[in-house]
Amino acid sequence: MKGRNIVIIGGNSGIGKSVAELAKESGANMFTYSKSQDDSNSLDVTEDFSEIAGLPEVIDGLVYCPGSINLKPFHRISIADFKSEMELNFFGAVRVLQSSMKNLKKSDHASVVLYSTVAVQTGMGFHSGIASAKGAIEGLVRSLAAEWAPNNIRVNAVAPSLTDTPLAQQLLSTEDKRSASDKRHPLGRIGKPEDIAEATMYLLSEKSSWITGQILPVDGGMSSLK
């Protein structure tokens, strides 16, 4: 990864922060953007934009991290809620990808990593909003992987289960909730940001150079074991 230009959208906390730390340790040139930043790299992905200031001329790796956890029974999810989920998780990714496309095409080995969720392939109650938005991400991954393969741009996604990030604290607010969440996973614990970051680094690196159009489950066995 040394000397490669890596762009991380949402790199100030949680999984994105862990990816940024690992990429920096590997010698990559880091370009991080986040809504919470106060400098020129502040970016609200829910707003309309067609360009991102300060992108490197050549992008070798692009990671889109913004996400949400809004779990409600279906009858309580409004159309506005569904639209909000799509704006952040899906349309934000589309805006970033369209703004970065020409820079990705200038790389000889570009890799794009998006994030899905275990709830897309494993039906879970109260997940209709987020599963719908991330299901759209999975479709986008496969379509773009096919379209961009001639440009040698790989497109993949990581599909985590519950991970111990600031975003998930509402689900882990007590020891009882944390213990119950741990026990739901076959490996006996929820994920750590580093678990997802390591998988992301693999997909960004040349070690995965023959992998594209894939959804990589990193979920403690949740999607395939009982």
Rank of each mutant, 00 (worst) to 15 (best):
M1F: 09
K2F: 03
I8V: 15
G10W: 05
G10F: 05
I15A: 03
G16I: 04
K17H: 04
V19L: 14
V19M: 11
E21R: 04
L22I: 11
L22W: 09
S26V: 00
N29I: 12
T32L: 06
S34P: 11
Q37N: 10
D38E: 12
N41E: 05
L43F: 08
D44G: 02
V45G: 04
V45K: 01
T46E: 13
T46M: 12
T46D: 12
D48N: 14
F49I: 02
S50M: 01
L55M: 06
E57Y: 12
G61C: 07
V63G: 11
Y64K: 13
Y64T: 13
Y64Q: 14
C65S: 14
S68T: 07
I69G: 10
N70M: 14
N70E: 15
N70W: 07
L71P: 06
L71K: 15
K72T: 07
P73T: 01
P73R: 09
I79G: 05
I79C: 04
I79A: 15
D81N: 14
D81P: 13
F82W: 03
S84C: 05
S84H: 10
M86D: 09
E87P: 07
F91E: 12
F91Q: 13
G92L: 06
Q98I: 07
S99D: 01
N103R: 11
N103H: 13
N103L: 06
S107C: 05
H109W: 12
V113W: 05
L114I: 01
Y115M: 01
Y115K: 03
Y115I: 02
V118E: 07
A119K: 04
V120K: 10
G123S: 14
G125V: 04
F126M: 10
H127E: 12
H127I: 03
H127Y: 15
G129I: 07
I130E: 15
A133Q: 10
V141W: 11
V141I: 10
S143P: 12
A146T: 13
N151M: 08
R154I: 06
R154V: 05
V155E: 00
N156M: 03
A157L: 07
V158L: 04
A159N: 00
P160I: 11
T163Y: 08
D164T: 00
T165F: 02
P166D: 06
P166G: 02
Q169C: 04
Q170P: 01
T174G: 06
T174E: 07
R178L: 09
R178E: 02
A180G: 03
A180H: 07
S181F: 08
D182Y: 02
D182F: 01
R184D: 08
R184Y: 06
L187P: 10
G188F: 05
R189P: 01
I190M: 00
G191R: 09
K192T: 08
K192N: 14
K192F: 04
K192C: 02
E194R: 07
D195E: 11
I196Y: 03
E198N: 05
T200S: 02
Y202P: 05
Y202F: 15
L204M: 09
E206V: 02
K207L: 13
K207E: 13
W210E: 06
T212H: 00
I215Y: 05
I215Q: 11
V218A: 02
D219H: 10
G221Q: 03
G221F: 01
S223P: 11
L225S: 11
